[in-house]
Nucleic acid binder design. Structure first.
Lengths: 176, 176
DNA sequence: CGTGCGATGTCAGTTGCTGTCATCAGCGTA
DNA sequence: TACGCTGATGACAGCAACTGACATCGCACG
């Protein structure tokens, strides 16, 4: 992982071969593919943990909490966790932004997050299509907030940006 | 395109090689790659036209129309166009649903649609982050509606499903 | 001191994709 | 009619991502 991150940063994702990563890590190419399904997956190793955090936070919200607010609570928890990573998430995002292939992979990870979120909401008793719509809207909020967080030079608080984005979504959807 | 559709349907996307497609079409593999950037792109050839329709419909909405309703108008137009395709969109979607690689590609096409939509809204004078949020929410509505349209055995009207999904999003975001 | 077992190395092979050069058909022009 | 241009295609070599199969090795456990 360290070797891959370093090389992707130095010369870009498409320009680095798996052979180079393996060599830098002192391993074989074959061994790389035993740990990561493909060349991109290295950058998304922590995605599962994030999804579990999201889901468990949603499930722990009081039963009286509205679906959209339960979703928001989960997303804020995920945002807080990301923020713990220091400069690494920003470096990671810079690598991803530079490659169309990696952006594709990121989108499917976000979609998987959305479906896990919809699932959690359904287990809270939310019906379809409300569960899916809430989940998709939640991920949209997260995405916009995250992008702002990345772009902000001043170190804004990510959970706070998520809350702000949700408020703006409420206004915008209401037809303002 | 016809050869690719047929083979993807018959034996699945991953199981068909470009050489087979080329042979079926009476062409060379090299020629295939001159027309399509990669093996997946065959299935997304019409995406540009759809985006143009979306954007132009959004831009043509009266200036007094709220951003979310302008977006909805564009999405309904796109939905109507898709519906014109008869059984082809359903066949296409069956192929895509069966392959993780293709789902990735579909997501990035939807993301590109979202960014084009946000762009159109900004040109209508909508500020950030409202434009991005409206666009993302609009695409979420579209996605949920489209999925329902695919699943429905009774031939539901896609633009109508989009309108319904938007109404449900409004309710859900308001905290119901 | 064996004996499994999980992680790694080795090697050969397939497939997606690209660069390069040759060929060929149509089409306008001297 | 002959010439030259252009755009589409074929032919071929090559790289890199991945995969399957088998061998090896270190290490815990009995």
């Amino acid at each position: 992982m360290q070797a891959a991150f370093a090389l992707y940063s130095e010369r870009g994702f498409e320009q680095t071969t798996v052979a180079e990563i393996a060599k830098r890590a002192g391993l074989t190419e074959r061994t790389f593919f035993r740990h990561f399904a493909d060349k991109r997956e290295v950058l998304f190793a922590g995605a599962d943990a994030l999804r579990e955090l999201l889901v468990s936070t949603v499930m722990q919200a009081p039963a009286s909490t509205a679906p959209i607010d339960a979703a928001a609570a989960g997303l804020e928890a995920a945002g807080a966790a990301i923020q713990e990573g220091g400069e690494l998430p920003r470096q990671r995002q810079a690598i991803i932004a530079a490659s169309a292939e990696l952006r594709e992979r990121e989108l499917i990870k976000l979609a998987s997050l959305a479906s896990a979120l919809a699932d959690a909401l359904r287990r809270r008793g939310v019906e379809e299509p409300a569960a899916s719509l809430t989940a998709e809207a939640g991920i949209a909020v997260f995405r916009v907030a995250f992008e702002r967080w990345i772009d902000e030079s001043d170190q804004q608080d990510l959970p706070r940006l998520i809350r702000q984005s949700l408020e703006q979504l409420k206004a915008v959807v209401a037809g303002v």
